[in-house]
Design a protein around this nucleic acid. Structure first.
Lengths: 202, 202
DNA sequence: GGCTTGGTTGAATGTTCAATCAACTCATCT
DNA sequence: AGATGAGTTGATTGAACATTCAACCAAGCC
């Protein structure tokens, strides 16, 4: 096993564990035993536990297109459909995990109360990547939306709804909370598009 | 200091600390030193740290009307205004804390990955209390909403938006993220009411 | 006065934690 | 061949952690 392998194995394992148990509840020993790496090797690549978190957040940030968007948008062309296809991906995660799934970034954002600036910036960058992608969908469908629509704010709003919907479904262990939230969002976006249609006749 | 005082002091201190640092990052020693209570006394009233959390969650649940809703709804009569008055209360918290504030229940919900059923039920009960209060506002304004509107789902949706808006404002340390999210929500509710008006003419 | 009960004190326990480090392996370069 | 240095090993360290407990106190009752 070469150096790149070890570093990568640590990051992948930490990604898994942070997602399963959260950052605080994951001990360095947990990472070591699951990744079959020895403590000295981990500390050779990372100054400390927090630097492993930084590495994981960088992986998320850099992998958003290939690992998150592309899989969910395969065969989906309509930009509005893309938004709900992405949300459907989160729904699948919830179903598969018996409503135990949590958005890894959202969980970290609420779990770490006094984040180091480096960590906070990376969490923010992850949010920005997500909501910018959604805003891009709204941009692509701009002709179907009201003229003055703040499409960046809409992107942030969809992120908000996803995070809140996942949070509630997870807390209640009931997918109904996710579905109802998404249904309301869908109603809003539908209404927005209907409004835009009316405008064009005015 | 009598027994009730000690128990209360522990709970109040724990409430503060869980809000400031989160549950996992608050040590029993933190609670002891700030509350000026000795470990034996704490363990006389609570079997363990988690039971202190249970006590805190019960306080939140039982205090929602007096401690959360009443202060924000003073002098506000219109039920739709009440919704945004409550959200404005969260905005004030964010401003006062330099966008460091987090909803205590939301934070706990995402921080504790494998909650004891007792804890999970209490977090859910807190969410339900909140969204039910908002649903009550929508009920009171039912005549201004579309006939078929799912007012329970709308209550959950407002909770979702609050949690997501707080999460983003906190992560970016920028109140703009909160404001834009609430603006979009306001646009939606306004649109809903406008739609209802149209309906009445149809 | 003595006994009971509810509460207090704080040192001590055993565990878990992140982090360290001296000793090592082994491919690569001169 | 010998030197170099990136990478590995795992026992060890010291701090922090939740929890325990024997001793103690004081108000109320017999």
């Amino acid at each position: 096993m070469n150096a790149a392998d070890t570093r990568q194995r640590i990051l992948m394992t930490a990604m898994e564990l942070f997602w399963e148990k959260g950052y605080l509840s994951t001990s360095v020993a947990d990472i070591l035993s699951r990744s079959q790496v020895h403590s000295g090797s981990l500390y050779h690549f990372f100054p400390g536990k927090q630097d492993v978190l930084v590495g994981v957040l960088e992986l998320y940030r850099d992998g958003i297109d290939e690992m998150l968007l592309a899989p969910n948008w395969e065969g989906v062309d309509d930009p509005i459909d893309k938004i709900f296809a992405l949300l459907a991906g989160y729904r699948t995660h919830l179903i598969v995990t018996d409503c135990t799934y949590g958005c890894p970034i959202g969980s970290l954002a609420l779990e770490i109360h006094e984040p180091d600036p480096v960590v906070r910036d990376l969490m923010a960058a992850n949010f920005t990547g997500w909501s910018t992608a959604i805003a891009g969908c709204f941009d692509a469908a701009a002709d179907r939306l009201p003229k003055g629509a703040d499409r960046k704010a809409l992107g942030e709003f969809v992120l908000t709804v996803m995070e809140g919907a996942v949070m509630q479904a997870r807390t209640y262990r009931d997918i109904g909370y996710f579905d109802r939230n998404i249904a309301v969002l869908r109603d809003y976006i539908t209404t927005l598009m209907a409004t835009a249609k009316d405008d064009s006749f005015a």
